[in-house]
Amino acid sequence: MVTDSQTLTFEPMHPRHTILAVVALALAAGCHKPPVALGPAPMSGAADSLNPARADSIARANAARQAELARAQAEQDSLRAVRDREQREAAQNADAMKVLAATIYYDFDRADLTEAARSLLLAKVPVLQAKPNIRIRITGHTDDRGASEYNLALGLRRAAEAKAFLVNNGIDASRLTITSMGAEQPAVQGDNEEAWSRNRRSEFEPISGGANQ
């Protein structure tokens, strides 16, 4: 404690005391895990003026510090790699899911598959094989021409044709369920061939196992 009558004076430290302080610092540096962002390194010139033991201690402290820096860097690199891989996989998964969800289209009053529909279905096969846990609901739709009740049956036949194609190409039937909405959920409103052709379709929706599997 400093009182009003005392005067603060600076006295050079005894060499023995100086060595102890450096060792203490070095020990402290060795025991404490520095944050990734570190302060400036000790001046090497200062160590030159110290005795060998002290220099060794400083060197060890520097080496430890460098090792920690390297370790932190490696940790960062590893995290970045994991993140990159995850992003790459997510993008690949999104692409796969896009392939899986691709809608196929039909001719008027027909349930048989067009060449374009077959191509889109074939592209789904490797995705389904690579993701064995995924299950898909296939929903058949029709345009709004014709009897709406009969259109429900037609939509189901369309979904069934798509399922049969996938099963014939090696996909387990139990992974595929079918249903129909007939003309009840048009993708496009309109009373013309452009709208009708986009409504005559089967849609594919993952109902389980759709996330990164």
């Binding site: 009740e149 429900l152 049956a153 189901l156 036949r157 069934a160 399922k163 049969a164 079918i178 249903t179 129909s180």
Partner: peptide, 26 residues
């Protein structure tokens, strides 16, 4: 189970006919 549509009562008021769709048709 599945797609079940177009119900109709018989005159007896108890029997119901309806269409049911599966992979093999409706």
């Amino acid at each position: 189970r599945g797609l079940n549509i177009t119900p109709a009562y018989a005159p007896d008021g108890r029997t119901i006919a309806y269409a049911s769709g599966r992979e093999g048709g409706t």
